[in-house]
């Protein structure tokens, strides 16, 4: 009992500290510093309509490269942790019913199409590589739930993932050799609201979308696999 009170006081102190800090920032008041610069300069400098995408990929592209690396490390960690275990459980899952199977077969290509649309239009509409990749992985999750015997071909997924990551780094190095700084804009900006606009954002987001989709599908495959893990091979 006394322990819970001590912990409660501790939590209250943390919350009060954050609240006192937050009292400097009133809700709903304009307090932009660097955001002003981004909003004013996105269209002339990058040619993208979505300012969030331009901040993520253009002004802070190096951070996003780090984020992709974190995601890759997590997928690798999940795979390694599951190969360490013995994986002896072989329980039979319940067979899914007719409606789910047929419906999955109908819906699955549309889910992939929507995911591809979202990550290709990341610089024009809300969305981008991470959201589209997550949507694609959700499609594979649906496939796993409907058909028990599903197993993705891990070699091909690793290939797609590697190509996606390689696109990012190669575009960054192109900027380094042609313009003198890593991830500099080497492609023309194009006209606003065109699909082929936004400079390096379109190829980078396609790469990120493929990479995130295959990575999250690999994580799902690792979590779902019962015995298949051992025969699939684990080297990257």
């Amino acid at each position: 009992m006394i322990r819970k009170i001590v912990y409660g006081v501790f939590i209250l102190i943390i919350i009060a500290a954050i609240a006192i800090f937050m009292s400097n920032y009133k809700f709903g008041v304009d307090k932009m510093d660097v955001g002003k610069y981004y909003l004013d300069n996105t269209v002339p400098q990058t040619g993208a309509a979505n300012v969030v995408t331009s901040v993520t990929l253009f002004y802070r592209g190096f951070d996003t490269l780090g984020e992709v690396t974190v995601l890759f490390t997590a997928a690798l960690g999940v795979a390694v942790l599951y190969f360490m275990g013995e994986n002896k459980r072989k329980q039979k899952l319940q067979e899914s019913n007719f409606v789910t199977k047929i419906g999955t077969r109908v819906v699955f290509p549309f889910i992939l199409l929507t995911g591809a649309y979202i990550f290709m239009h990341g610089h024009l509409t809300p969305g981008g590589g991470f959201q589209g990749g997550a949507l694609i992985a959700t499609g594979f999750l649906l496939l796993y739930l409907a058909y028990e015997e599903t197993s993705i071909d891990r070699k091909k997924f690793y290939l797609v993932e590697g190509l996606g990551g390689l696109t990012y780094v190669i575009i960054g190095l192109l900027g380094f050799f042609m313009k003198g700084s890593f991830l500099a804009n080497v492609l023309p900006n194009g006209t606003l609201f065109d699909l082929l606009s936004g400079g390096i954002m379109l190829p980078i987001y396609i790469g990120v979308g493929l990479k995130v989709g295959s990575e999250l599908s690999n994580i799902i495959d690792d979590l779902m696999c019962e015995v298949k893990c051992e025969e699939a091979g684990g080297e990257e």
């Binding site: 899914s96 019913n97 409606v99 789910t100 419906g103 999955t104 819906v107 549309f110």
Partner: peptide, 19 residues
């Protein structure tokens, strides 16, 4: 999309309820 997906989720939910 709603026509395609709503019956799938509904049948899966009812089946889980039956199980």
């Amino acid at each position: 999309f709603i026509i395609l997906t709503a019956p799938i989720s509904g049948s899966a939910l009812i089946r889980a309820g039956y199980k």
